[in-house]
Design a protein around this nucleic acid. Structure first.
Length: 789
DNA sequence: CACGTCACTGTTTTT
DNA sequence: CAGTGACGTG
């Protein structure tokens, strides 16, 4: 009777999946099959316990995790059922609830979601109006982080002074309370929420409206939360609200991998879960399937130094594997060349693909010396992270137009584009608009709309009105049902945006043009996809989807290319590589100097290092440089204390450095497992002078492999308007009339599939198609792009 | 309004 | 060092 997927689980995993009569806490060690347990449990809840998919809620932290889970569940229970589960990030699931329940909280359903940049811009504006110093005392970023902290603690502006005034005064930021109050009022006037509001407002909704809360408690029979160690207070409290009635909850996480306290995550949520839920059960997944025994044991020996944790015994039944290589090097340059040599030897001698290798570091600037070295040697690499597509100026500007169309009270969007492209509305006029808005207690948009009524000179009033008319035209077209792709093209051409972007031809200009083209392409895809499935495809539909999306998510990441991955340890969480090199293991860098003397922060740094080590499957390399360029100066450091905390019997230490703490007395034993076939080339006396040992003889430069991503490859001339037609494809008529169940088709994006069902006729004909890789989809035939086989 | 110059200031990052 | 933002000049 048990579904076959249970047979793929080990006893611990099966226990965690099959016990559902009490709240459960699943402690999932690194590489222990956490996602498998979570997805199998959902399938089990549906198949065996008999809970309907729409009554299940599954919450994750990232879109990527949500997507992965959706896919895996779809493959177990079918795409149709999987679709009905409420599954997504905390923020996206709650945003959906808030849009539905907007009437209770005094927003309208098309509220805008402000990202961090928008929030900072708003804070800056408030600081300016209050004449507070935004350079030293009230840096927008720190003001925002204080407000964010308060919101994560569910503290509304009225209650703020009670809890924080004292602390604020202590660091001479006594005005934060005022700023917070004003900030919330401005958000509300703009019909906007920031990321933290999505949590705070959800909590308030349930708190202030018990009948609404009850409705959701009734509706959701089972709630699952991934990465519970990363939840903040607000998230924890909302989950408590949602589960009050049924107490059907399963949280999964690993306290040893809690690395986000700096943005409000509270490890205590997972440590004290059993107190929050009486009678809950604890399950531990302790078998690691990812790493060699050496790596697992070494990581255990490190994390043992933390006191604040749930006891567990992570073990591996994989091979013992080779020892962990530790390289002491003279400088960042030396470190980079040591790593490059090691990895390229591994590639050449043991034929390990570069795509199985990663280099992890604590801070982003550390990638520089590595990049330079790799480029010199022609080793292919890619950097993970960096500026998101949606944060680029041209993209934000274009989206600001859409935002303003959907919600003209969105003052941040208005501010971005009121004079972009330049239309003679200078800073003085802009300041006056905002002043007038504040004195008359209206939104800046209302001032722009009625400029002459607010006493602007006739020239300024004329320009403001012209701008208002421009936006109103777009709004009109939008309300008549124009899809977002067409609207975007109209905006770009009518506003002068397109002309401005396509004027220049410097490499930077070309990149901007390419980015804009990429945006319009992705909007086209959005419209196409939504129309095929009979869903609305207007600007507000698009914004709802895109405002909680980061491009880390849609990266198919050129999986085809064989490159070494470079990223921060934080970014590596949840990933794994056969070979991992952790670089920059020096005091003051890892652990960071700001965290070194605070015991609980030090524990977090140690967890961070634990995460780094446990990314590795077979080879783990740890490197440390005695000197490093930082902020343009050479700085010297000692090897990091964590190196001493790992049981030395798992380590193989390379290099003879004078005066280090982590010296191995003799490094004469040359191990076969070391692809360098020798100890580090860094011999000599450290006390004299750091010697750069870049070796130009190895690896001749191969320019073609340069991994720079932003170099435009195509020249986008006026191809803008000639992008793919959005109207129904002309040839569809015959195809539509001829299509019938059983037929094979190839869809432009979903690939090959079989028609299962055809409903309706003519314009409204729909087909249910089962695709080989994309699962079942409903297609509106008049829009679908496909060929019949 | 566009561009050059100077001072400043540096974690980790998702939504 | 490098990126940002403020300010001043043509």
């Amino acid at each position: 009777m048990d579904p076959s997927y249970l047979l793929q689980l080990n006893p611990q995993q099966r226990e965690a999946v099959c016990n559902n009569d009490a709240p459960s806490l699943v402690i999932a060690g690194a590489g222990s099959g956490k996602t498998r347990v979570l997805t199998t449990k959902i399938a089990y809840l549906m198949d065996v316990v008999g809970i309907r998919p729409e009554n299940i809620m599954a919450l994750t932290f990232t879109n990527k995790a949500a997507m992965e889970m959706k896919q895996r569940i779809a493959s177990m229970v079918g795409a149709q059922s999987a679709m009905r589960i409420t599954m997504g990030t905390f923020h996206s699931v709650f945003a959906r609830i808030l849009r539905r329940e907007y009437s209770h909280i005094g927003f309208s359903s098309n509220f805008t979601i402000y990202d961090t940049d928008d929030s900072k811009a708003l804070i800056k504006d408030i600081l300016k109006a209050k004449q507070l110093d935004e350079k030293k005392q009230y840096k927008p970023a720190s003001v925002l982080s204080r407000i964010s902290l308060a919101k994560n603690q569910l503290i509304v502006p009225e209650k703020y002074p009670l809890s924080y005034a004292h602390a604020d005064q202590a660091c001479s930021m006594g005005a934060i309370s005022d700023i917070y109050k004003e900030y919330q009022e401005r958000l509300r006037k703009a019909n906007a929420m920031d990321f933290d509001d999505l949590l705070l407002q959800t909590w308030l909704l349930f708190h202030d409206h018990p009948q609404v809360s009850e409705q959701y408690q009734d509706f959701y029979h089972y709630i699952l939360v991934d990465e519970y160690q990363d939840t903040n207070y607000a998230q924890h409290q909302i989950v408590l609200q949602l589960t009050r009635k049924r107490q059907n909850i399963c949280v999964v996480g690993d306290d040893a991998q809690s690395i986000y306290s700096f943005r409000g995550a509270e490890i205590s949520n997972i440590l004290h879960f059993q107190e929050a839920y009486q009678g809950s059960r604890l399950f531990k997944l302790e078998q690691n399937y990812r790493s060699t025994q050496t790596i697992v044991d070494a990581a255990n020996s490190l994390i043992r130094h933390n006191s604040n944790q749930i006891p567990k015994q992570i073990f591996s039944r994989n091979q013992t594997g080779c020892p962990i290589e530790v390289f002491h090097t003279y400088s960042d340059v030396d470190e980079a060349s040591t790593i490059a040599r090691y990895l390229s030897n591994l590639h050449i001698r043991e034929h390990m693909p570069y795509s199985d290798m990663a280099i992890l570091y604590r801070t982003n600037p550390q990638s520089r010396s590595l990049e330079e070295e790799f480029r010199r040697r022609g080793i292919p690499y890619r950097i993970y992270g960096g500026m998101s597509f949606y944060q680029r100026k041209e993209i934000k500007d274009a989206i600001a137009y859409l935002r303003l169309c959907v919600n003209p009270h969105d003052e941040t969007a208005l501010h971005r584009i009121i004079n972009y492209p330049t239309r003679g509305i200078g800073n003085t006029t802009i300041d006056r608009v905002w002043q007038a808005a504040s004195t008359h207690n209206v939104s800046p948009w209302q001032v722009v709309e009625q400029a002459s009524a607010y006493g602007f000179s006739s020239a300024s009033a004329k320009r403001l009105t012209a701008f208002a008319t421009l936006i109103q035209t777009f709004r009109q077209e939008m309300s008549e049902g124009m899809d977002v792709a067409t609207l975007m093209l109209r905006i770009l051409s009518q506003s002068g945006f397109q002309a401005d972007i396509f004027r220049g031809s410097t490499p930077e200009d070309l990149t901007r043009q390419q980015n804009l083209q990429e945006l319009t392409d992705s909007i086209n895809t959005f419209v196409q996809e939504r129309q095929e499935q009979g869903l609305p495809s207007g600007a507000s539909d698009y914004l709802q989807e895109v405002s909680l999306l980061t491009d880390q998510d849609d990266d198919k990441t050129e999986a085809d290319s064989d490159r070494i991955t470079l990223m921060t340890v934080h970014a590596s969480k949840g990933l794994e590589f056969k070979t991992v090199c952790v670089a920059g293991l020096e005091e003051n860098l890892f652990p960071n100097q700001m965290d070194a003397d605070n015991p609980s922060r030090l524990e977090e740094e140690r967890r961070l290092f634990y995460v780094a080590m446990t990314r590795a499957g077979e080879h783990l390399i740890l490197t440390c440089a005695r000197s490093r360029m930082r902020y343009g100066h050479v700085e010297f450091s000692d090897p990091c204390r964590f190196l001493d905390e790992i049981n030395p019997s798992y380590l193989h230490i390379n290099g003879r450095m004078g005066g280090g703490r982590s010296l191995s007395p003799s490094t004469s034993s040359i191990r076969r497992s070391n692809p360098l076939g020798r100890t580090s080339a860094t011999t000599g006396n450290f006390s004299s002078q750091p010697r750069m040992t870049a070796s130009p003889t190895e690896g001749t430069a191969n320019r073609s492999l340069s991994a720079r991503k932003l170099t435009p490859t195509r020249h986008f001339t006026s191809s803008f308007t000639s992008s793919q037609p959005l109207s129904p494809s002309v040839g569809n008529k015959e195809k539509v009339s001829s299509i019938q169940p059983g037929q094979k088709i190839v869809h432009e994006r979903f690939g090959p599939g079989i028609v299962e069902k055809v409903e309706g006729t003519g314009m409204d004909a729909r087909a249910t198609v089962s695709f080989e890789s994309a699962g079942k989809k409903q297609l509106l035939l008049r829009f679908a792009r496909f060929t019949v086989l």
